[in-house]
Design a protein around this nucleic acid. Structure first.
Length: 555
RNA sequence: UGGCCCAUGGUGUAACUGGCAACACGUCUGAUUUUGGUUCAGAAGAGUCUAGGUUCGAUCCCUAGUGGGCCAACCA
């Protein structure tokens, strides 16, 4: 059978293998910078690398790209590891670019020896100015032809901490005319006096990304270095540096780029997320309106649903935005399979059954999950006074509405068929109680063939008032009004925030739900999937809405 | 005015070394259903950015154009 859906990265690897690359030498890595939490875009890179690892039985390293101590923080290290583990992946080695600082430093000396690097004493503005523009060649630095001896002396002194930050940088001596701006003598070392999470104060010069990544891949024996499209222009540097420092051209890993996952109405830039947090627009990195891994987890997305999403989204080099529907589909698919059904009423209105015995409690059995009959049934008490959804009753029903209304009947899930007779309203005309009668012979599961007699078009869920417990539900909507964050200037930032992105509603839940635990997931019958929020306890009954059910009812 | 990358139904991806476009989501029917859910059956919807070229034949190869993206941080 022809293998379908193979993405272009896999195709490249297959081709390499076919051309003689030993399968056992395959090795991948996921290289996050510890400067924030992982988000949905990273999931793509994680899944891509780890599933390649799984497919070819190749190790996958976790490597922290920790070359900039001013932006990074040790606390993100654990968060990142936690998120990857939560997704269900185990890395082979836990590596740090900082482990290679000494080697990188030695290689830099080698580069100087080869006349391919020099110490520049100009400031950042001068260097930037001299770069020119894509269509205009740059100007060579006055220090470009410094002697090798002097370069080595200065570079050594940089490392020894003899200079203030910003006074010197080490630059690769490549080409000031290259159409690839990155090749116009890129800076590869800068002076930073800032404690590093791992190396503390041992270093005051730090290598730049381009001087670090390829070499790190090489040290770890990575065969295929996968990164997102924006690194494409860096590929030239990746190869140039590696060929410059290595004795022979064998075993050089290579970089391949794929398009990052852009999700509609989603903020994934760490900078923007930090801004949202500092402005108080969201509550933190795990605010369920965000698409960080911790936020998705808190909202109730499962690892399987997320992996499936990435898988369905595919891998390509096109820069496109994928809609939220697919994500929703994936979580519904997963939760439909495993979430227990419970009855909860989000917008309660009282319903009284006038011909049902007062104070009577009648146990009713309801399937925990119709997808898995083996899960068994749960017991709920039926009585004469219930809560139902306000939206399940219409005084003047529209044509396509077939739930409850005066003179009409519906089935109460798992119990009896009722007929609405009248409503009681408050002074403002708002319905406070719906009065019904029930048909004793219509009980769910009864042998009597009453279904045709009563002609019911809908089944609604309910909760006995006496058994209902007050709880809260948090309902989220898209955070952004505008799909394209880039379109708006900073000053307009607040204008693109959806003011109704979060609603907290008081709801009624079954008593049994009070013993749920944080992260436990349910289907509130007919209402959607909900997840017990972090900090959930009998004294803090808060659920997050994970996803809505599909609904073909169009009001 | 430079270089590189991309261009397929509404959306995201497929189509082996060229053989008249497939899958998923979404949409719409119908059946089943004690969730307007699930499941099942089916439908609509693109002639592959444009113009040339090569070829018996092009989504695929070539050229030019158009549109979009990336690159000029002591960020990664």
């Amino acid at each position: 059978m022809k293998e379908k859906g193979k993405n272009f990265i896999e195709a490249i690897i297959e081709r390499d293998i076919a051309e003689g690359f030993p399968v056992e030498d395959l090795r991948f890595r996921f290289p996050p910078e510890p400067n924030g939490h992982l988000h949905i875009g990273h999931i793509k890179a994680i899944v891509l690398n780890f599933s390649l690892g799984k497919k070819y039985k190749a190790p996958v390293n976790l490597r922290f790209d920790d070359t900039n101590p001013t932006k990074e923080d040790a606390r993100y290290l654990d968060e990142i590891k936690k998120d990857i583990k939560w997704l269900g992946y185990n890395w082979d080695k836990e590596c740090y670019a900082s482990d290679y600082f000494e080697q990188l430093y030695q290689w830099a000396h080698l580069l100087i020896d080869k006349g391919l690097a020099y110490v520049d004493s100009q400031n950042s503005d001068q260097i930037a100015f001299q770069k020119g523009s894509p269509s205009k060649p740059g100007i060579e630095s006055k220090d470009r032809n410094r002697s090798i001896e002097e370069n080595k002396r200065l570079f050594t002194q940089m490392r020894e901490g003899r200079f203030r930050a910003g006074t010197y940088v080490l630059r690769a001596r490549l080409s000031m005319e290259s159409p690839n701006m990155l090749l116009r003598d890129p800076i590869i070392y800068r002076i930073i006096y800032s404690d590093h999470p791992k190396t503390k104060d041992r270093w005051c010069i730090y290598p730049m990304y381009d001087w670090t990544h390829g070499q790190s891949d090489y040290i770890e024996g990575i065969s295929h270095s996968l990164c997102s499209l924006e690194f494409m222009p860096h590929r030239a540097l990746y190869t140039i540096f590696l060929t410059a420092i290595l004795p022979q051209k064998r075993d050089i890993p290579f970089q391949r780029e794929f398009s990052r996952l852009n999700v509609a109405y989603s903020v994934t830039s760490k900078r923007e997320i930090k801004k949202l947090i500092s402005l108080g627009i969201v509550d933190g990195w795990d605010d369920p309106r965000l698409h960080t891994i911790c936020a998705l987890r808190r909202k109730g997305y499962t690892p399987d649903s997320l992996k499936r999403f990435v898988e369905l989204a595919g891998v390509s080099k096109r820069r496109k935005v994928i809609g939220l529907e697919l994500l929703e589909y994936c979580i519904r698919e997963d939760l439909n399979r495993c979430a227990q059904r419970v009855m909860a009423v989000i917008r309660p209105v009282k319903l009284r059954i006038v011909n049902y015995l007062q104070n009577k409690k009648e146990p009713i059995l309801i399937e925990k999950n119709p997808q898995n009959p083996n899960d068994g049934k749960q017991k709920v008490n039926f009585s004469d006074t219930l809560y139902i959804e306000r939206t399940d009753f219409q005084e003047n029903p529209t044509a396509n509405f077939y739930r409850l209304s005066i003179g009409r009947q519906v089935r109460l899930k798992g119990a009896y068929i009722i007929k609405a007779e009248s409503v009681i309203k408050d002074r403002d005309g708002r319905i406070i109680e719906i009065r019904c009668i029930y048909y004793p012979d219509s009980k769910s599961g009864m042998a009597t063939d009453t279904s045709s007699t009563y002609k019911v078009k809908a089944t609604i869920h309910w909760l006995s008032v006496d058994d209902a417990v007050d709880a809260k539900v948090q309902i989220f909507d898209r955070l952004l009004l505008e799909d394209d964050l880039e379109k708006l200037k900073e000053t307009d930032f607040k204008k693109l925030i959806n003011p109704d992105s979060k609603k907290v509603l008081p709801i009624k839940i079954e008593k049994s739900l009070t013993s749920a635990v944080e992260g436990e997931q349910f289907q509130f019958l007919r209402m959607g999937y909900f997840t017990a929020d972090k900090g959930f306890s009998p004294r803090n009954l808060v659920f997050n809405k994970t996803a809505t059910l599909r609904d073909s009812y169009k009001p």
